[in-house]
Amino acid sequence: MYDSRMIYSAGNRHIEETESNSNGAKSFGRQRQYLKPKQKRARWKKMANLVRVTVGYEQLAEERIYDNYAWHKKAWTMFEHHHELKDRNSKREMDKGPTPFLSRYIQKSSHAVLLIVSEYSPLKPDWCGNEQWQMIEIDESYLTQDSYYFDLYANPTKAVKKPDNNGGFTKHGRRLTLMDTPSQREWLYRKGNSHGFQLVEDIPLRIEKPVNHYFNRKGKKGLHIGVRFQGALRVTNSCEFRDAFRRGIGTAKGFGFGLLMIKPAHF
């Protein structure tokens, strides 16, 4: 069955998720150091950085962090020192490409937690104190396992055609959120096929009720709907799976969806 912990491993260091709140979201516990005999240590290349930021609700109000778009803008302040990312933001929306980091926002009883995974090295912003900031490096060795437990908060959608004014359809159409459990389950199976993994049937897949996330972006109101998936997976294509870990799964990845939290599993 499910392990009660979710761990990101980074070589010899781990940040461990141990505490659950009433919403089922989990927080990370203290950072632990694991030492191996020096002669047996493998030299693995750093693949990504994991950041955990803890923010109290009073500070959220002071910083005007009211929705996922506000979180998104705050997360960007950690990467402003990368000049190539500044060039990216000057481009048209359709030319920008994927957001260079994945994030997830977890609300707890006394504070909120921001998790970020990125290939770019972040810097602690001025609005974040030293005691709020925790970062480790994730190396390639973590994605060499055959099976994992996973926790995914995603925006499961499907593309539908959008009529234009000439009796035809627009090029890009629009996306509709999948609201029923069978469609959400089918969506995750499809994503697994395209991202190098399949679900482990012996372990039940948990799908929580959809949650509305309203936001205000440049004076326009919007809505994303999030669904939490928990279960176990088996890797079928290591390259595609590593890419899913780095790039995320599903849509609205710039708004706190699609970050794949995993822990090695042994069935």
Rank of each mutant, 00 (worst) to 15 (best):
P182Q: 14
K191I: 09
G231L: 09
G222E: 00
E208N: 14
D180M: 12
F229L: 05
N216F: 09
H195R: 09
M179S: 14
G231R: 02
R174Y: 14
S194P: 12
Y214H: 14
I203Q: 08
F229G: 05
F215G: 03
K220L: 02
E186L: 13
A232G: 00
F197A: 08
R175C: 01
G219N: 02
H172M: 14
G173I: 07
S194F: 01
L205C: 10
D202Y: 10
L178G: 07
R217M: 02
H224K: 10
R228G: 02
T181I: 15
G196C: 10
I225M: 00
S238G: 07
K171Q: 15
I203P: 14
E201K: 13
N193T: 06
R174L: 08
R174H: 15
G226I: 05
N212Q: 09
F169K: 04
R242W: 03
L223H: 04
L223T: 00
K221C: 06
M179F: 13
I203D: 12
R185G: 04
L233A: 04
L176Q: 13
V235F: 03
F169Q: 08
R175L: 09
K220H: 08
N193I: 09
N237H: 10
S194D: 09
E186V: 07
R217A: 08
R190M: 15
C239D: 12
K218P: 00
I207G: 00
L178I: 12
H172I: 12
L188C: 00
C239F: 13
E186Q: 11
N193Q: 10
V235Y: 02
I225Y: 02
F241G: 05
R234E: 02
Q230C: 03
D202R: 14
I225V: 07
I203H: 07
K221S: 10
R242V: 01
F229W: 03
Q230H: 08
N237S: 13
D202M: 14
H195M: 08
R242K: 10
I225T: 01
G222L: 03
L199S: 09
K220C: 04
G219Y: 09
T236M: 08
R190I: 15
T181S: 15
K221P: 02
K209C: 00
V200G: 07
F197Q: 08
G231W: 01
N237K: 06
S194G: 11
M179R: 15
C239A: 15
Q230P: 06
K221F: 06
S238W: 10
V211L: 04
P204A: 03
I225K: 05
K220P: 06
V227Y: 05
Q184W: 01
L188V: 02
I225A: 00
K218N: 03
A232Q: 05
A244F: 02
R228Q: 01
H224W: 08
I207F: 00
K221R: 11
K220R: 11
G196N: 06
P204T: 09
Q198Y: 05
G196E: 03
